[in-house]
Design a protein around this nucleic acid. Structure first.
Lengths: 198, 198
DNA sequence: CTTTGACGGAACCAACAGTTTCGGCAATAA
DNA sequence: TTATTGCCGAAACTGTTGGTTCCGTCAAAG
């Protein structure tokens, strides 16, 4: 996924990859997906929109899913801060508000990616990694709250995480209702109710 | 969707529809989707498995999504009782346990249907109807609890429903962890905590 | 027996994912 | 400058899919 720098003996000769091509492909993929007919975006369409040959796309990405995944990761991973204010309620609220805002901006991308992941095993695998990473962030936040006694000691963390991200994906994919800051506030209140201190 | 009986002036002449064809198509569609390669089930494959011509399938269903939707509805709608024991906790628990059990049995169908709905507007519309009906059932259950003061008066019902079905779909589509009776118990406890009586 | 209409078979189309071939051109090492 | 490496576009190609169309057959009813 990450374009690691290969440790080559030879310092690299020949023509270099054109960064503008990469940008054009990722941007056009995202734009097309956000368009009126965003459900069905073909590689041909992306290539045409980006002024790039299909050949070039397949030189750098193994599949359509990989293109969408990279476009999404690039846009989503940029700014979701992981707060640590010392209180679970405020941490969670900030984290969710931030996440929801980021997610709303790549909603089309996520829907297209999910459609791909439901058919292509490779795309599904890439998704799973991304999702696992997001779960880890949220779990860390909850664990701190749990340690401070801000959650009942017997809280099932995985279930809680499932509930939070479940609501997010459900609204994103199925009912398509918006994820607002109010949702974040409301959700963090229903989830993180004070428990019995240890 | 429902095969309504047309009010024809002429009492119907000619050869009748073979019910065995319908059964074979729906059953084979479900079976293929549950198979090892369930992500990609083509109309051709369904026709081949059912010993039926593609022509016949398209005579009775407008699209692949319609076939899957009908197969799913037929299997899912059969036995999810809506309990009314007088107490929200037990109602919810029974309803969710029942729902989860039914859903687990058509999990493959639901995933295939969702994949279709993310691409095809018509399939998405069919899904929305089905989902709205399920939401109505759950809402009725919660409203009764709310009226009895078993939920805080200020409870946001839609959010609560989103949380419940959100968890369900999230596990079904994304993390693919099982929906057990324990999940139902656990979930109904975290959602339906006693509120301030009116 | 005639009409209506369900059904199978097969050919057909357009769109798509993905691959391959070719020829040109840009960057680097010599 | 020149040879080499390798990026890039154009376009043809394969195989699969959803969906349509035509034809011939066969079953049910009047």
């Amino acid at each position: 996924m990450s374009p690691r720098e290969p440790v080559e003996a030879r310092p690299h000769t020949g023509r270099r990859r054109n960064p503008a091509v990469r940008r054009a492909v990722l941007d056009c993929a995202a734009d097309l997906l956000a368009g009126p007919d965003g459900m069905a975006v073909s590689i041909d369409a992306i290539a045409r929109a980006a002024g790039v040959s299909k050949h070039t796309i397949y030189r750098w990405w193994p599949s359509k899913g990989a293109v969408l995944l990279e476009a999404m990761i690039e846009r989503a991973q940029q700014e979701v801060t992981i707060p640590d204010t010392g209180a679970l309620a405020t941490d969670l609220e900030a984290f969710l508000a931030d996440t929801f805002r980021a997610v709303e901006q790549v909603a089309h991308l996520l829907r297209g990616l999910m459609a791909e992941a439901l058919r292509d095993t490779a795309a599904a695998e890439g998704m799973r990694e991304f999702i696992a990473a997001r779960r880890d962030e949220l779990r860390g936040l909850l664990v701190r709250g749990l340690a401070r006694g801000e959650l009942p000691a017997e809280t099932d963390l995985e279930l809680t995480i499932d509930q939070i991200y479940g609501l997010m994906w459900y609204r994103l994919l199925i009912v398509r209702s918006p994820l607002t800051t109010e949702t974040a506030v409301h959700l963090s209140r229903t989830v993180a109710r004070p428990g019995t201190p240890p």
